[in-house]
Design a protein around this nucleic acid. Sequence first.
DNA 1: GCCGTCATGTAAATAGTTACATGATTAA
DNA 2: TTAATCATGTAACTATTTACATGACGGC
Lengths: 180, 180
Amino acid sequence: MKAYNDTTYAILGILTTDCKSGYAIKQFIDRSLSHFWKISYGQIYPTLKLIVQEGLAEVNVSTTSGRSDRNEYHLTSKGMDTLKNWLEQPLQQAPVERNEVLLKLFFGSYQSPEKTIAILQDYKNRLEIRYEMYETIEKGIHQHNKDEKDAMYWLMTLDYGKRVTEAAIKWCDHTLKNWS
Amino acid sequence: MKAYNDTTYAILGILTTDCKSGYAIKQFIDRSLSHFWKISYGQIYPTLKLIVQEGLAEVNVSTTSGRSDRNEYHLTSKGMDTLKNWLEQPLQQAPVERNEVLLKLFFGSYQSPEKTIAILQDYKNRLEIRYEMYETIEKGIHQHNKDEKDAMYWLMTLDYGKRVTEAAIKWCDHTLKNWS
DNA sequence: GCCGTCATGTAAATAGTTACATGATTAA
DNA sequence: TTAATCATGTAACTATTTACATGACGGC
């Protein structure tokens, strides 16, 4: 079976929900997937074109009064098979997360401790904002998608985000404490 | 002050250690930086060329008997200033870590629970291997770089890796328990 | 009339990996 | 002599972001 990149599979997956247009996909990603996957329009539209070319989805124009026309993409059975096949494949080598904070900290001896502390404090603030965002998304799922069979899986990914973010916040606290 | 990409700053930072050639930089990254930053030769050599063009380092050929000639790069004061200036800059918007496991889990309802469990188990194994790698690097720093002023900072980045990985492992356990 | 949202798309630039090419030295 | 390590580099490809271009509709 032909292989595609993960971004293509992400879009195939989203097309199983009721997000069917490029615009709706972008919104879905920003609202529900953004803690572990981001895609820009510059990737979405060309990828949708590819998906149709490959026969993984069919497109039809939906005209709703009071709205711009939208292209609706519907998975074909070939598209669904392709998605399921990818789900079954073993994990690829995990790409290393590039962490700008750690990179700066690594060379911290060329900087005053005050500056390093400021960076850590800033990072901690960002992590806390992120944690709150996860909780907001979580509440949204509990309220609006409680019955959906997908909801449980979506909540698991959020739980991951919360746990890892919490550990990072604790590391900030611990590291900051070593200086005071 | 002119801006470069983070990979360029990473290389400038490494040139402050006693790794002075492209080959030595690659080894240093693979041994000490690989848990949060990876760079391939395809980036290192062109970037070193750029660094010299920009006057951030000077190159001279070192001939050691019984070794191939190696190009040694030495930071200029302009290079050192550029590094220090970057260290002081506030953090950029943190790029989202793309996580293939979470992406597959997100669409887990299109797969049998057994397959999902297998993916989580596989992920947990990888995380455990990664955790052990961190401990190995940590021991190496304790033994060989104890006196270096950088060592403390290097250990902090490893502590981050360990804490975050531990949290991810616990999430795997917790998520797997929900199915059994 | 203007702003926000809905909606689709492309071009150029940037970033990064992979595969390839080359060649010296050393130890088994 | 052959494999491993040291050493440098490029070309092609893949991935991705950013900035731009366009336009409709609804509400203030």
